[in-house]
């Protein structure tokens, strides 16, 4: 498969706490190695811990620096959003994944 030719979609599901951080980071790195254009379907996600959010930020920043983009698709469940309200990452949900991504402060920018 040629890099950059095909958009890959990964579906995430369940609770992403620190225990699954390594696993998630690996999965996204591998996917980004194939193509900098990546879609993440977050419809099944119940919770993102801070570690998982950092990985999303990092992945989005990597994708952008390689000329691609990391796009969130599907729906951000109410439980997912509500968990992130107090820390300023999200408004109360449910939201479309696009809206969710747009409200993540500084998401998708290339890290300095």
């Amino acid at each position: 498969m040629q890099p950059g030719s095909i958009k890959k979609t990964i579906s995430l599901a369940g609770s992403y706490t620190i225990d699954r951080a390594g696993e998630l980071a690996r999965e996204l790195s591998e996917a980004l190695a194939h193509s900098p254009d990546l879609e993440l379907d977050i419809s099944g996600v119940v919770e993102f811990g801070l570690s998982a959010l950092q990985i999303l930020y990092a992945a989005a920043s990597s994708a952008a620096s390689h000329g691609g983009s990391l796009k969130l698709v599907g729906t951000a469940q109410a439980s997912l959003c509500d968990n992130l309200v107090a820390s300023g990452f999200a408004p109360t949900g449910p939201l479309s994944a696009g809206e969710f991504a747009a409200r993540l402060p500084g998401f998708g920018k290339v890290a300095q």
Partner: peptide, 24 residues
Amino acid sequence: SSIPDVSRVPPLESLDPESCYVSW
């Protein structure tokens, strides 16, 4: 009202998934 600062989150290649990079 909280505003997270994510500017210190590195790209995935140099990220340690078990470290914290965000401040508020």
